[in-house]
Design a binder for these strands. Structure first.
Lengths: 108, 108
DNA sequence: CAATTGGTTCGATATTTTTCGAACCATAAG
DNA sequence: CTTATGGTTCGAAAAATATCGAACCAATTG
């Protein structure tokens, strides 16, 4: 049977590409999502965008870019989704990178 | 008199924006340029792209993106240009970032 | 089972970024 | 002064990304 739509593909730790990760982090909205997840996993419904009226399809697309780059994990939880930062995988593949990004002061 | 075309604008250290820097570094060709400059300044003519037949206008545009993000400095030197990585400024503004990027293994 | 909630996917359109030739500019060399 | 070299800028076209509504799907609730 075909893979259930509810479990989305995640790249393996060893397959993470630096340029893809940097690109995913280079958008302010996506970076803000990552900052929220730095404090721990979050249900997607509790992960808010700067503009709360953003359509859900747009939000879903932002998550897709982050997920496909290997920055976040997106798993089914109940009827929603649980988002988490792949901090260990990122640290293993690109030591120091995610820490410096999270540590950087927020842009004005 | 109008500013000479030969000295290009560079953002001040304090004005560097994380997302712009990450975006500039997120392109494989631009990242390769940055890696070359990690060993020290280089004349632009000696800074080679993966495809040597790339038009000079394209090469110039790659440098523009890096310069406007504050990643590199581009100064007149003789009849050419001297390129350098703004390592100190990057380190001051985003501690650890450029080091982790340069330290990361090259993508396959 | 029906309705609601929370989310993905698809397709079209808008926006951004890239590419590249042509024109142009400044310096150095003849 | 003329030519060659090394580069920027402009404008148009191509390619990549983002946005968003509609359709759809799965789990929970009534």
């Amino acid at each position: 049977m075909a893979p259930d739509i509810t479990d989305l593909p995640h790249p393996d730790r060893t397959d993470l590409r630096l340029t893809d990760v940097l690109f995913a982090l280079s958008d302010p909205e996506r970076l803000a999502i990552v900052r929220q997840l730095a404090d721990g996993p979050l249900e997607m419904a509790q992960c808010h965008l700067s503009d709360p009226s953003t359509p859900k399809s747009t939000k879903s697309h932002l998550m897709k870019v982050l997920r496909e780059a290997g920055v976040i994990r997106n798993e089914t939880l109940g009827r929603g989704r649980r988002l988490s930062l792949r901090q260990d995988d990122l640290e293993a593949r690109f030591p120091g990178l995610i820490g410096s990004v999270l540590g950087a002061s927020v842009d004005r």
